[in-house]
Structure formats: C-alpha cells, structure tokens
C-alpha cells in the first residue's frame, strides 16, 4: 500500500513538473512580456506613473549632456530643412503635394533597461497620441525598437537590445544590406550579417537603416564599422559600434508609416 502511494506521489510530481515547465516555456515563447503589459494594464499604469517621476530625477542629472545633444540635432535638422525648403520651392511648381511617407510622434523615455537579453523601454505616449503596436521608434542617431503594446498614455517598446529584434541595415558606401542584430554583451555593439565577401567594409564606415521594411525609414545612421569577419566562407559578419547610447536615452520619435497598409496589402495580393 505504502509503495503504491509512493509511486502515485512520484507520478503526480513528474506530471506537475512537466505541466509547470511547459506552461512556463509557452509563456516565454509567446512573448509574455507584452501580454503582461496588456493584462496588467492598471498595475503598469501605476508603475509608469512612478517611472515617469523617477526618470525626471535622473534626467535632471543628465540634462547638460542631453541639451548639448539636442542642440546638435537641432542644428543638423535646420541645415537639412533649409536645403529641402529650396528644393521644395522648385518642386511645388511641377509636382503635386503628396502625403509624406513617414510622420513622427515625439516621446520621452521614462523607463529603459539595457542589461538583459530582452530589454525594453516605456514611453510617455500612448494610443491617445496616435501610437500603435508595431510602429518603429528611432532617434537621429539610430533605431531604438518596435512598439509592442500601448495603453492610453504609455507605450511599451521592445528594444533593439533584445534577442528577438533585428533591423535591416546597409553599408553607406556600397548599399550592401543585411539584418543587424544586437550581440547581447554590450549595449554599444551589434552585428550586421549576410554581407557578400567581395564588399569592402573599412573600420569607420557608416551603417544606415535600409528602409526595406514598413517599420523604419531609410538612411538613419545606425553605427560605424569596427571590424569584419568572413562567416562560413560565403558572407561577412560586420561588427558595428552603435551611434546611439542606449544607456542615456531620453527623447525619441515614434515612426508612423502612412503607407504601411498599402504596402502590406500589396504583399497579401501577391500571395
């Protein structure tokens, strides 16, 4: 009788172990972090409120660096604007005005992690400001991530510093492109792969976003080439030092692709 009870106990323990572990793996695979944000909306809202206040404190100590960065970015944008204004005046006479492909929503980072394998950010803009899941997040110095979930006034962004994130990137000179992923060791370093071996990539060359997706605009500077190695004899893996310092992120832009539905509709038609 006792041995039967022991056998039954062992069997239930094994079954329970399998059930709990399977349940855990399913949650991990199904991106539980986004689900949690949706399910625990109220808890997240309280946390977001708290993070917003703590981020203001940390910003106070970094405002000088941030201010200098924004001034430089502003100067660069003004120079670009003056060039575009001149070109636009000429174009207006012959070309009809079309809706721009991308519009940007300014946002402030109130929470940011950089030391995990699945990093994330919380922004102080949500559905009320037009942010939707699937939109890209960028700065003038790089791609930051993709919006995973939104509440009314906050959004959760899956950082580029994550095991499951990649951005289509190209070498500025040759235009050769491939997926760029974070290496997982330092928030500054990523790897651009699938670059043909005949393409020359010298240290210091700039890597840009390719724009071959509906998420990120093209030609955003992402980083500089550090080194390259040949992988499996057929392509190069290029180590890239990212321009953006993820540790001190503050102001970002959420990207809305105004033609996303049209492009995706085209894919569906083709299939």
């Amino acid at each position: 009788m006792k041995s039967r009870y022991g056998l039954f106990s062992a069997l239930t323990a094994i079954v329970l172990f399998i059930v709990l572990e399977t349940f855990s793996i399913v949650m991990v695979v199904k991106e539980g972090v986004v689900q949690r944000y949706k399910v625990l909306g109220a808890v997240r809202s309280v946390e977001s409120w708290f993070w917003e206040r703590t981020s203001k404190v940390s910003y106070y100590f970094n405002y000088k660096t941030e201010n200098e960065r924004l001034t430089a970015e502003n100067l660069q944008l003004r120079q670009q604007l003056s060039r575009y204004a001149a070109a636009q005046a000429e174009l207006d006479s012959v070309v009809r005005i079309v809706e721009p492909m991308y519009t940007f929503i300014g946002a402030t980072v109130i929470r940011n992690t950089v030391d995990r394998q699945h990093n994330f950010l919380i922004l102080d803009r949500g559905s009320a400001e037009g942010v939707e899941a699937g939109m890209g997040v960028v700065t003038s110095r790089g791609v930051i991530g993709i919006v995973g979930a939104v509440s009314r006034h906050y959004s959760y962004v899956k950082s580029l510093l994550g095991t499951d994130q990649s951005v289509s990137a190209k070498l500025a000179g040759s235009g050769a492109f491939g997926p760029m992923v974070w290496t997982g060791t330092s928030p500054d370093i990523a790897q651009l792969s699938q670059i043909p071996v005949h393409i020359q990539a010298a240290p210091g060359d700039t890597v840009l976003s390719s724009g071959y997706s509906t998420i990120y605009p093209p030609d955003i500077p992402l980083g500089g080439v550090v080194s390259s190695t040949v992988s499996q004899g057929s392509s190069q893996v290029i180590t890239v030092r990212l321009f953006e310092d993820f540790r001190s992120l503050r102001n970002v832009y959420v990207v809305k692709n105004n033609r996303k539905e049209e492009i995706e509709g085209l894919y569906e038609q083709a299939q």
Partner: peptide, 18 residues
Amino acid sequence: LDILSDGVVGLNAFAAVM
C-alpha cells in the same frame, strides 16, 4: 517575480520549478 518585475513572463517560473 516575472509579473511584478521587468522580466519575461515565464522565465523565472521555469527556472524556479527546475
């Protein structure tokens, strides 16, 4: 811990049961 902290849901649960 997964739900209340900033982790991936299921990660600590998996490790804890193991």
